[in-house]
């Protein structure tokens, strides 16, 4: 009896020690991973002299400065950050709308209808998922040049009309598989067409996955660099990600504080979305598998 309680208490003690160790490790890893982000936030308020040579996140108490933000805001000689934000949104908003619609209906077709060649379509979606983008960038650039689309924002969202992002298609298919078909059938009995069924019956159910698709395409679009770099090459069409590069190219004197301030301002929407809706990401990525 005594030995029994002894081992139990030992086991409990061992498991508490174990879990404390676990939390210490988990927290340490978290701090380690988040450090660059906090360093960026803190350094946005530093003078150049205080940024390097130490590991401090915050500037010395008496040496805070807000001067970096106006400098960063005036991102290029002729335009402020607002201008580049607007340019980003000019391709990003249509891109998100088209992505959501085209990926949802493609997923709807694959998940709910039996049509000849459906297997081929499904295989094509997988192939698209595995296909490295660089293989198409060159021919599409040539094609868009001939169509006069280079240097228009449409060059960055026209592909989204055609559900090229199969990762999102998969996400919606996975979600649709969990939605009972009885819902569709009931709607057909009530005289709804497939489109009406999608719009009135399934769309409300699909809301979480649709929001996730929209949020992820927003964040990826904010991060997007290679596409804007290739397809938009006039200063008036420059998007935020590409304009940010200019900060480091002023070889005379890079104002590092301003670089961090600009980076902070550029990441704000992403961070706001992430902390506001982190549940959407973690759970949806888990259920569908993320690529990046």
């Amino acid at each position: 009896m005594t030995t029994n309680t002894k081992t139990t208490s030992l086991r409990i003690r061992r498991s508490t020690v174990g879990s404390v160790v676990r939390y210490v490790i988990l927290t340490a890893v978290g701090i380690f991973l988040a450090y660059p982000l906090f360093w960026m936030l803190g350094s946005a308020f530093k003078y150049n002299a205080d940024i390097f040579g130490n590991i401090n996140i915050l500037p010395p108490v008496d040496r805070w400065t807000f001067a970096n933000f106006p400098i960063a805001w005036q991102l290029s000689r002729s335009n402020t950050m607002l201008f580049y934000y607007i340019n980003t949104l000019r391709f990003l908003i249509p891109s998100i709308i088209f992505t959501v619609i085209s990926c949802t209906i493609t997923a709807y077709a694959v998940a709910r209808f039996n049509f000849p060649g459906k297997k081929i379509v499904f295989t094509a979606i997988i192939v698209t998922l595995l296909m490295p983008g660089i293989a198409f960038t060159i021919p599409i650039f040539i094609l868009f040049t001939n169509l006069g689309l280079v240097n228009t924002f449409a060059a960055l969202y026209i592909q989204d009309i055609f559900a090229v992002n199969s990762f999102f298609i998969f996400m919606v298919i996975q979600f649709l598989r969990t939605v009972p078909r009885e819902l569709d059938e009931a709607s057909y009995i009530d005289g709804c067409s497939p489109l009406q069924t999608l719009w009135y019956i399934l769309a409300p159910v699909l809301r979480p996955v649709v929001i996730t698709v929209a949020l992820l395409s927003f964040i990826w679009g904010m991060n997007a660099f290679q596409g804007p770099l290739i397809f938009l090459n006039t200063p008036e069409r420059r998007v935020l990600a590409v304009a940010m590069r200019g900060l480091m190219q002023d070889e005379m004197a890079v104002q590092f504080g301003a670089v961090f301030a600009a980076a902070t301002m550029a990441l704000l929407p992403t961070l706001a979305i992430f902390f506001g809706c982190s549940k959407f990401f973690v759970e949806s990525v888990a259920s569908s598998g993320a690529k990046e």
């Binding site: 660059p36 360093w39 960026m40 904010m222 940010m244 670089v259 550029a266 990441l267 992403t270 992430f274």
Partner: peptide, 12 residues
């Protein structure tokens, strides 16, 4: 993962 592809993070 979410912010790692951004130019901001690359600069940092």
């Amino acid at each position: 993962t979410l912010i790692g592809g951004s130019i901001a993070v690359a600069l940092v």
